[in-house]
């Protein structure tokens, strides 16, 4: 079943097409890689899919309640509420908030009490806050950060900040998760741990995962299918083996001879 589909998606910045005529089809439960040289338009594509930018042309459709719904140009928080979550290439945690509060912010949209019950501290407030608290702790357990829950996010070491970003994205209760260079700056041990984490959350939370990554060992290791972007255009797609041997891909990375 298709969960996310783009048709002829294009985004121009001035005269430059950062993403040009990209048509993708992602199936439910897939783990898809998006690779390409620096400046190929990978993050721009993520930004289009999550509503940061509006498409200049083309369509984006997401599976919502068993039918495809157009989400191109919707506000980011609406798209998040429809089930897409992401992490960022350069970590963007709420630095001054505690680890636990970072997760709770992600859960905000699923917390059901109004300002009145909060101010008057009606039972509903306590029921909901306790539920959120427990769920947040569970998520922290998944990414192994439970003992750091009261630290400020900015005080975590780099690798743990990456993991917290993943947990915060999970907190929005997504069906589709975008990971933007999750292994950037990690050592081989951490990358291995991350690989396991990605597989684990994909199964545990029944996710479709799309990841941008430069670490080829990670991409070839976890991705079932790979799309390759160069100069904003899709130049190849297929399983890891075929991508490794694809002439166009090798040219894009190494240049023509």
């Amino acid at each position: 079943m298709t969960v996310l589909e783009t048709k002829n998606l294009t985004r121009n910045f001035g005269g430059l097409a950062a993403v040009s005529n990209v048509s993708l089809k992602i199936n439910k439960g897939e783990l898809v890689g998006l690779i390409g040289p620096n400046g190929a338009g990978k993050t721009t594509l993520f930004n289009l899919l999550t509503g940061v930018y509006e498409p200049s042309e083309g369509s984006i459709e997401l599976l919502v309640n068993d039918s495809m719904k157009s989400i191109g140009g919707l506000k980011p928080y609406t798209i998040t509420n429809l089930g897409i979550a992401r992490t960022f290439q350069n970590i963007r945690l709420f630095k001054e908030l505690t680890v636990l509060d970072n997760i709770k912010v992600g859960m905000n949209k699923n917390i059901k009490y109004g300002a009145i019950s909060a101010i008057l501290r009606l039972p509903k407030y306590y029921v909901e806050e306790n539920r959120v608290h427990d769920e947040a702790l569970k998520l922290l357990e998944v990414v192994n950060l439970l003992d750091k829950k009261d630290e400020l996010a900015k005080n975590l070491p780099y690798g743990e900040q990456r993991k917290l970003e993943i947990a915060r994205a999970l907190a929005t209760n997504p069906r589709v998760l975008f990971l933007d260079e999750p292994a950037a700056g990690m050592n081989p041990n951490e990358t291995q741990e991350l690989t396991n984490l990605i597989r684990q959350i994909k199964n545990e939370f029944d996710l479709t995962v799309i990841l941008i990554e430069h670490d080829m060992s990670l991409v070839m290791n976890v991705c079932e299918r790979i799309y390759v972007l160069d100069y904003g255009k899709l130049i190849a797609q297929g399983n890891p083996e075929s991508i490794k041997n694809n002439k166009k891909v090798i040219e894009a990375y190494l240049g023509e001879d």
Binding site: T80, R92, L93, K95, V105
Partner: peptide, 23 residues
């Protein structure tokens, strides 16, 4: 201690990230 308070603090630290977390 409330969700709107957390949203306020999140928006004040990073508006764009907050938007992408469904705020």
């Amino acid at each position: 201690k409330t969700k709107i308070g957390r949203a306020m603090r999140a928006v004040s630290t990073d508006t764009d990230a907050a938007r992408l977390m469904g705020i």
